[in-house]
């Protein structure tokens, strides 16, 4: 059970949050111009990395804000937390 440092509220228990899966999957601006394959890539394909993964989290039982974290899925260590729209840290 990890502790997450919500960028708006501070450090809270994991039970207050929900995970929204892989981060930085931008919704295509013009979906109608995509082929079936390209659209399927956006819609269905996820990396599910063992190791450093960029994830979306929501402070469901708190400020209800979405933000991103960088988590090592092999040991749950959180390396960075940053707001939506901010650039992800390059070096972990």
């Amino acid at each position: 059970m990890f502790l997450i440092n919500c960028p708006y509220c501070g450090e809270r228990d994991q039970t207050e949050f929900s995970c929204g899966g892989e981060a930085h999957l931008e919704r295509p601006k013009q979906p109608t111009e995509l082929s079936d394959d390209q659209w399927a890539e956006y819609l269905f394909m996820r990396k599910n990395i063992k190791g450093i993964q960029y994830e979306r989290w929501n402070h469901t039982h708190g400020c209800r804000k979405w933000f991103n974290i960088v988590r090592d899925t092999s040991n749950d260590k959180i390396h960075a937390v940053y707001k939506i729209g901010e650039k992800p840290p390059v070096k972990i």
């Binding site: 295509p28 013009q30 979906p31 109608t32 995509l34 079936d36 659209w39 399927a40 819609l43």
Partner: peptide, 11 residues
């Protein structure tokens, strides 16, 4: 032009 799910309606 677009709405949530539109592109999927002609997969």
């Amino acid at each position: 032009y677009d709405f949530i799910g539109k592109r999927s309606l002609y997969r």
